[in-house]
């Protein structure tokens, strides 16, 4: 027996904290505290994933899983002013039976996972053997943007589908009867906030762009960078009380930004097919610039998309908004 690894104690502590935070978030009475605990949970999960040599995933979890989801939760709580309980909760007997079956499933799953040896090599050699043809130096980016680029294209499509669905939902609401809430508590207004924004927005833009660019060499990439850019988008929207700019150009510009990633990604894919390689089969010599082009446009689209998902409503013509100015969502 070798002496116990001191890191293992750290691991045990981290794992236990993660589990406690998950339970605390779900069983917490106060909705706002729940959202905050959930964000903390996501950040600690990211820490665990750094420990497990998954820095890209950790970045994505911290920026998107904790950050964006947390912002969406807080924004929704602000809108609805607390949770609404279902009129007919699950009966205790049913809940007990469900609990038992889930516990049984988890026990079997846990034991089976422990009893199963991890596959020896996974796809490590397959990726390593093809890295020189991938056009990038970072393996995760090579997988996302080249070896399994089709998955990533569809992933960007999922996000686009989400915006369309959210806008379809927005259309169902009679805005004359239920005006947009002003997001009063989080609106960034006044001279101090203005100075803060002038400082923070360029910094966020720079960090986001850096994350996208560095993705070719080390952890980072379009989704993490796009999430940081989205933070800039959300902050500048909050400076307007959580509304889109009221110009006539907003809607066409926004629609263009939302689809840019899919258009460039598909365009490059089809261009590669016409050039003779097959869909998404980049010529190795041009792979790097093509991947950077795709990443930059996907990052912009992700930023626009996440901002649109946060605001949750379509840009409206200036005349219609003016009628509703100053309204709040008291119920």
């Amino acid at each position: 027996m070798s002496p116990p690894d001191p890191y293992l104690l750290l691991d045990l502590g981290l794992a236990a904290t993660i589990l406690v935070l998950a339970l605390a978030a779900l069983r917490q009475r106060d909705s706002f505290t729940m959202a905050v605990v959930f964000i903390l949970f996501g950040l600690l999960v990211a820490l665990a994933w750094v420990r497990l040599d998954a820095p890209d995933v950790a970045l994505a979890e911290a920026a998107i899983g904790a950050g964006v989801t947390g912002a969406l939760l807080l924004r929704t709580l602000r809108h609805v002013g607390g949770e609404r309980r279902d009129p007919a909760p699950v009966p205790r007997v049913v809940a007990g039976m469900l609990g038992l079956s889930v516990a049984g499933f988890a026990t079997l799953g846990g034991l089976a996972l422990m009893a199963t040896p991890r596959h020896g090599t996974g796809l490590i050699p397959a990726v390593a053997a093809r890295m020189d043809q991938s056009g990038v130096e970072h393996p995760v980016t090579a997988v996302l943007l080249n070896f399994r680029a089709y998955d990533t294209l569809l992933e960007v499509v999922v996000v686009l589908a989400a915006v369309m669905a959210v806008w379809a939902i927005d259309r169902t609401i009679d805005r004359a009867a239920a005006p947009l809430p002003y997001l009063p508590g989080v609106a960034l207004r006044g001279p101090i906030a203005g100075a803060y924004l002038r400082l923070v927005l360029p910094a966020l833009a720079l960090i986001g762009a850096y994350l996208v660019w560095i993705g070719a060499y080390s952890p980072g990439g379009a989704f993490q960078g796009g999430a940081v850019l989205a933070a800039a988008g959300v902050l500048s929207a909050l400076a307007r009380g959580g509304r889109w700019p009221r110009t006539a150009a907003t809607m066409p510009l926004l629609r263009g930004s939302l689809v840019l990633g899919v258009v460039v990604f598909t365009g490059v894919g089809i261009w590669a097919a016409v050039a003779g390689g097959g869909v998404l089969h980049y010529p190795p010599a041009q792979a790097k610039p093509l991947i950077l082009l795709i990443e930059a446009s996907v990052a912009l689209s992700i930023a626009a998309t996440l901002t649109a998902l946060f605001l949750g409503h379509m840009p409206q013509p200036a005349a219609r908004i003016a009628l509703r100015k100053g309204t709040t969502n008291d119920t």
């Binding site: 399994r148 569809l154 589908a161 989400a162 369309m164 669905a165 379809a168 939902i169």
Partner: peptide, 24 residues
């Protein structure tokens, strides 16, 4: 199998967007 998962999610979100169009 993973690609199938992503395609099903594309379909699922689009279907939800379609399902609300009545507005009720």
């Amino acid at each position: 199998i993973f690609n199938i998962y992503v395609t099903l999610e594309v379909a699922a979100l689009a279907a939800v967007g379609l399902a609300v169009l009545t507005g009720s």
